[in-house]
Design a protein around this nucleic acid. Structure first.
Lengths: 322, 322
DNA sequence: ATGATATTTGCATATTTCGCAAAGACAGGT
DNA sequence: ACCTGTCTTTGCGAAATATGCAAATATCAT
């Protein structure tokens, strides 16, 4: 196996016309140059350079080898440069994977801004609701809501994953507004579940955590269905804030029992960006994660303004509800 | 500087789909493969391969790099192969340098046979009479008659450089045949010399060496001129056997004082092939030198048959003269 | 001839690379 | 649900390789 260094020294010697000159230019002993070139000659099995103390001249084999090899070296440097270029600034294809509902509402709308800021990036967005292996599908980033399992991946928190109870103004006008968790038992609660069996909602409030068995005339394994039903005035739904926050802000839905937190004991299942834990994190991935972090901020736009806001111009949804 | 080995291991890993598999195929520890690839990634500044314990997958940078680099590796191997191929059997251009007179008579006529035996060789024959540096003119071989000076070159003896006294039959009929060196003083001796001043011919015979001051009505610095004059019957010439041997055999010239050797004390100035002393002697050079050695043999065709030949069919020139 | 500079080789020293063992990770079978 | 086998990675000592210096030899210019 001939070493790349030997080949570089060979071409350098041809260019410089002297091993010593090469040594001078590259700050190494002439003897090293000599030995490397000799080793290269051994490896290809032919004399490449005729040496005199005064002059170097190429043999026919040397000419042939030099012509081909100098072009190859250039191509090799070019290949390295191309790869390095990729990392200079965000560039190339960025494969993003995420859940459908969140992706449609909060990833896709963000892409124009991102692409505007990084015009050399092309995005391939894959929205799926079944769990996929990042590497399997060739994704660079996955946005996950809730459960974090992949241990080999780095998770960067993007936003909290608060769930809020809400119903349409029409439903509340018709069925009344619950004032404490126990009131829920008397309401038509829209159940999102993947399993059979009873469903309990855990609500943490000032008096501790209350677990309420809830039920109603709709059970589904699809959050969007619950969402649509709630909008239609069917009942009270427990839905993530990123899904209904803006509807609440717009008044199409009204938050109820806003003083309580859903599943307070559960591990904080936030919204995260996951990406492989590599020594070299590609700039496009970093740029996109940073972009999302910045865009969502500590309190995402779909969340209500801070409850304790000092005389906020617009009262928070919590305020309005109470 | 990225090492070639690392690049080879990178492509091997892409092909094999696993560092361990590469290690198995190449009989090396998986850890080495891992480290080399990691070093390559550091050198280009980007992650090339996403690793899991179960699967390797290329990043975009890796795909890009792999595409370019695998083609480059193939070209590199091809370049080495091309050079090695040159040395498998005599092939390529063979630059031969030699003196004009000898080249015309004994090199050029040999070339058809050589090229017939080695059809892939192309010959570039340069005949010059001034001394040239082999490497300067890019020659692979020089044929030199007489003086050997280049010390860095390897000299392979091709033939002796005997000089013989001869004259045309017509001249001898007119002026008589010298029987001993001293007789030459009375003959018209054709002088080849590069310098001014007197010229002595040293003739070694059974009674020791006789030095005879010779002269005549022609002095020239051109051997061919002496040759032509001798053929024309002008006088007695001292000429190399390779120049006049065949004329003597044909009877156009007659050797005189054949029992004496010219310049017996001088170093044996034979005819040599000179070529650079390289570790890798190219096959075409070796083939050509071997070819000449074989063609000329221990007693070149231009020399008389051995004097002591047991009842040689044709008596030697020496014999005939005496 | 002499001096300056060139290549090459021997030898001692650094640097790199390698392989082994251990640790952490993951998929599939029991 | 646990266990097993295989995979990658890292630490560490050993082996291989490369390097620089000095000396020997060779060449060109003065």
């Amino acid at each position: 196996m001939n070493s790349l260094n030997a080949i570089r020294l060979f071409t350098a010697a041809v260019d410089a016309g002297s091993f010593s000159e090469v040594g001078r230019r590259l700050a190494m002993a002439p003897s090293s140059v000599s030995r490397q070139v000799a080793a290269l000659e051994d490896s290809v099995g032919a004399q490449l350079i005729h040496r005199t103390t005064r002059k170097l001249s190429l043999t026919e084999a040397g000419r042939l080898y030099f012509e081909r090899v100098s072009r190859i070296l250039a191509e090799l440097d070019e290949a390295s440069a191309a790869v390095s270029h990729l990392e200079e600034s965000p560039r190339g294809v960025l494969h993003i994977n995420g859940p459908t509902a969140f992706g449609v509402r909060h990833i896709a709308p963000a892409l124009p801004d991102f692409l505007d800021r990084f015009p050399e990036v092309r995005i391939e967005l894959t929205l799926t609701d079944n769990f996929v292996d990042l590497l399997e599908v060739g994704a660079d980033i996955a946005v996950r809501v809730g459960e974090l399992e992949d241990s080999s991946l780095i998770a960067r928190r993007l936003a909290p994953n608060r769930r809020i109870l809400c119903a349409s103004p029409g439903y509340l006008a018709r069925a009344g507004t619950p004032e404490c968790p126990r009131d829920l038992a008397a309401h038509n609660c829209l159940i999102y579940t993947r399993h059979h069996g009873n469903v309990n909602w855990n609500l943490g409030g000032p008096d501790g955590v209350a677990e309420v068995r809830v039920g109603g005339n709709l059970r589904t394994n699809n959050t969007e269905a619950v969402h649509a039903a709630a909008l239609g005035g069917l009942g009270i739904a427990l839905l993530p804030s990123w899904l209904v926050g803006q509807e609440v802000q717009a008044g199409r839905l009204v938050a109820v029992l806003a003083g309580y937190r859903a599943s307070p004991g559960a591990l904080d299942t936030g919204i995260h960006a996951l990406y492989p834990a590599n020594r070299h994190l590609s700039t496009k991935v970093r740029a996109f994660v940073d972009f999302l972090v910045e865009r969502y901020g500590p309190r995402p736009y779909w969340e209500d303004p801070p409850a304790g806001g000092a005389g906020a111009a617009m009262p928070s949804a919590d305020m309005r509800i109470r």
